[in-house]
């Protein structure tokens, strides 16, 4: 019994470590003071200031736009990939799958600057195409992992049953495979959206001059002196991530943890 209480205390301690700084930040976004210090006086003025801050609002729109395109591309590429890799076997399958998740294990710093060097090697200016390319390669693994876990759980007998009942390949895909993959496509898409929306490093290296995203705005306000609205923006960002995660969590439940294990349950 005492043992159990100690265990719960330990968990509480860890959760405090995990959440206190984030909680303080959210609290400060509702605080009158601009120096992020106590005492706490409730105020919504930073949210009102945020509404009129066109730079931050544009950055928010850009971030949402990039993440949206990235999410869609990742779902399409990821779905095609897992469908195709169903029929591949042997060493190619292993090779392809490990290449797909490779960007998870290489620091983003290296991915970002090697893409920057690629732009340079082609003697181009920084452009949105490469921003999307960068965001897609770092977000794609998440879609692939989620979709792979789902497709492995599907019973291939269903495909065969559909075929033996006279459905052609396209009908089988449309009526059987697609509906069964749909939840994983939504979950994977939201995960990739979230990875892109939150990404700073790739945008930092690749974004063309004059275009900005929310993480880049946060970074420059930390670097060049504080914009007090940053607390409010950060709180909104956390909110957006939580909404995405709630969608993913509702679909995947605790199997969400498999993402951390290379897709193995």
């Amino acid at each position: 019994m005492k043992n159990g209480a100690l265990s719960k205390l330990y968990i509480l301690g860890i959760l405090l470590f995990l959440y206190t700084p984030i909680f303080v930040l959210m609290l400060m976004s509702f605080n009158e003071s601009r120096y992020n210090t106590l005492p706490f006086v409730f105020s919504l003025k930073w949210y009102e200031a945020l509404k009129d801050n066109t730079t931050l609002m544009t950055a928010m729109n850009n971030s949402l736009y990039i993440a949206f395109v990235t999410g869609i591309c990742c779902v399409i590429l990821g779905t095609l990939f897992v469908l195709g890799s169903q029929v591949i076997s042997g060493k190619w399958k292993g090779l392809f799958s490990s290449m797909m998740v490779m960007p998870l294990s290489i620091p983003w710093l290296i991915m970002g600057l090697s893409l920057l060097l690629m732009i340079r090697a082609f003697q181009m200016d920084k452009n949105m195409f490469f921003v999307f390319a960068g965001h897609i390669i770092i977000s794609l693994p998440y879609s692939v992992l989620v979709l792979q876990a789902r497709i492995q759980a599907l019973d291939s007998a269903l495909d065969e049953a559909s075929a033996s009942l006279g459905a052609n390949a396209l009908t089988t895909f449309r009526r059987i495979t697609l509906p069964m993959l749909a939840p994983a496509m939504v979950a994977g898409g939201f995960l990739s959206f979230m990875m892109s929306f939150d990404n700073f490093v790739i945008s930092y290296f690749l974004i063309p001059a004059g275009i900005t995203t929310l993480p880049i705005e946060i970074q420059s306000s930390i670097k060049f002196g504080f914009t007090p609205e940053i607390n409010a923006v950060s709180t909104l960002i956390i909110g957006i991530s939580l909404v995405c995660l709630a969608v993913v969590g509702a679909i995947m439940g605790s199997s969400l943890k498999s993402i951390f294990n290379g897709g193995k349950a």
Binding site: L18, Y19, I22, L25, D198, Q219, S234, I237, I238, S241
Partner: peptide, 8 residues
């Protein structure tokens, strides 16, 4: 927290 913004 893993899925909240790194910079935040």
């Amino acid at each position: 927290p893993f899925f909240t913004n790194q910079l935040v």
